[in-house]
Amino acid sequence: MEMREYDLASSNHKFRVKGYWLDQISDFDQEVDYPVIIICPGGGFTFHSDREEEPIALKFNSLGMHVVVLEYQLIGNEPVYPYALQEMAKTIDWINHQPESRHVDKKKIILAGFSAGGHIVAAYNGVATDSKLRTKYQLDQYSGTHAAIILGYPVIDMTVKGSFPNDEKIRRSISPDPTLWQAQNLLNKNSKPAFVWQTRTDKLVYVINSLMYVEKMTELGLPAEYHMFGSGIHGLALGTYVTKKPGKNKYLNAGASKWVDLFLGWLQMMGFLG
């Protein structure tokens, strides 16, 4: 496995991605092209959580997938949107231009978003599959498309009272365009399949977020698998000792940690692995 960092740019904005590339297995009878997962970590749009970067990237590597971590635009002098959407489109385009020697299955690009990163992935699943929105947010200059998404305890609707971000000033610093505040309303009949999981007792991002997204997908007839675990805090990541914060056992959750196995089964069922 090779890990490398790359500097990319979209709309004159520089950003960084990290590639976790699988090697070929020498005793296979033929070469294998691997799917690739693009991870958008959480962090409240103010930082990129390390707990949702390399630990999850390596876990996905172990399932037989290349991984790219997207360090998207954060709140600062400029808003998160629309730059984060353009950065995702550029990253997909960049993956599509990887050399054949990288052995990427370019038809199996899967987007994974956690918490705030989940909003970027959820919104992209609507914007990038709608020709008018794709033009409006200047994504049409980039090639390639994603095949599916995975959302872990995602921010979906930024207007949910009491749920993050529970402040209009923060919402506008994330996106001055209210069109992007409610990712479920961006979905359309061309949006891609989704695997979604969250805990019912999430006190930061209320579980209604993921429920609304899956409900909208169901209305549109889009493939979706949803797991709501009975208990657990926000930001579990893997839910194991690998991503547990020191001295904080609340980040251990044997039940919710099963999301990885459930996701693997869904990938196989959908024909993305195996």
Score class of each variant (00 low, 15 high):
Glu225Met: 06
Ser11Ile: 03
His146Gln: 11
Thr240Leu: 10
Ile174Glu: 03
Gly64Gln: 09
Leu264Tyr: 13
Ser173Cys: 05
Ser26Pro: 06
Phe263Asn: 06
Ala116Ile: 02
Phe114Asp: 02
Asn209His: 11
Leu204Met: 15
Gln98Cys: 14
Ser257Ala: 15
Thr243Ser: 15
Ile109Asp: 05
Tyr213Met: 01
Gly64Glu: 10
Phe28Pro: 01
Gln98Ile: 10
Tyr153Gln: 07
Phe229Tyr: 14
Lys258Gln: 14
Tyr213Thr: 00
Pro165Tyr: 08
Glu168Ile: 13
Leu262Pro: 05
Val68Leu: 13
Asp167Lys: 13
Pro178Trp: 00
Met158Gln: 13
Glu87Phe: 02
Ile174Arg: 03
Ser10Val: 11
Ile170Met: 15
Ser101Val: 01
Asp105Tyr: 06
Asp23Val: 05
Ile38Gly: 08
Ile56Val: 15
Ile37His: 10
Tyr34Glu: 06
Pro41Gly: 10
Ala256Gly: 04
Tyr251Asn: 03
Ile95Gln: 05
Leu204Tyr: 12
Gln268Met: 15
Ser101Phe: 00
Thr135Cys: 08
Thr240Gly: 08
Thr199Gly: 09
Ile37Thr: 13
Met212Ala: 11
Val205Cys: 12
Ser257Glu: 15
Met212Arg: 12
Met212Ser: 08
Gly232Leu: 02
Tyr251Trp: 09
Ile92Phe: 05
Met228Asn: 09
His97Val: 01
Ser115Tyr: 13
Arg16Cys: 08
Gln198Asp: 14
Leu133Gln: 04
Gly232Thr: 02
Ala194Phe: 01
Ile39Phe: 06
Tyr206Arg: 14
Met88Val: 04
Tyr137Ala: 02
Thr243Gly: 11
Phe272Cys: 03
Glu215Gly: 02
Phe263His: 08
Lys161Asp: 12
Ile208Asp: 11
Arg171Ile: 04
Glu2Ala: 07
Ile174Ala: 04
Ala254Val: 09
Pro165Val: 10
Ile75Gly: 01
Thr179Ser: 00
Gly42Asp: 04
Val36Met: 09
Lys161Met: 12
Tyr124Ile: 00
Trp94Asp: 11
Lys244Trp: 07
Thr145Gly: 09
Pro178Val: 00
Gln86Met: 11
Gly247Val: 10
Ala9Trp: 04
Thr199Asp: 08
Arg16Ser: 10
Trp266Asp: 03
Ile75Leu: 07
Tyr83Pro: 00
His103Ile: 10
Asp27Cys: 05
Gly230Thr: 10
Thr129Phe: 14
His97Trp: 09
Gly255Leu: 11
Asp23Ile: 06
Tyr241Pro: 01
Pro154Met: 05
Pro176Ser: 10
Tyr20Leu: 07
Lys59Gly: 09
Asn188Ile: 00
Gly42Val: 09
Ser191Met: 04
Thr129Asp: 05
Glu53Cys: 15
Ile56Ala: 02
Met3His: 07
Gln268His: 14
Pro82Ala: 03
Gly221Cys: 06
Leu211Ile: 12
Arg16Met: 07
Pro154Val: 02
Ala123Ile: 00
Leu8Val: 09
Arg4Leu: 03
Glu225Val: 06
Glu71Leu: 13
Lys258Glu: 09
Ala123Arg: 02
Lys132Asn: 08
Leu204Thr: 12
Asp7Trp: 02
Tyr6Thr: 14
Tyr81Ile: 04
Leu85Ala: 06
His13Trp: 11
Gly255His: 14
Pro193Ala: 11
Ile95His: 03
Gln86Ile: 04
Gln184Asp: 05
Arg51Asn: 05
Leu273Ser: 14
Ile95Gly: 07
Leu236Gly: 10
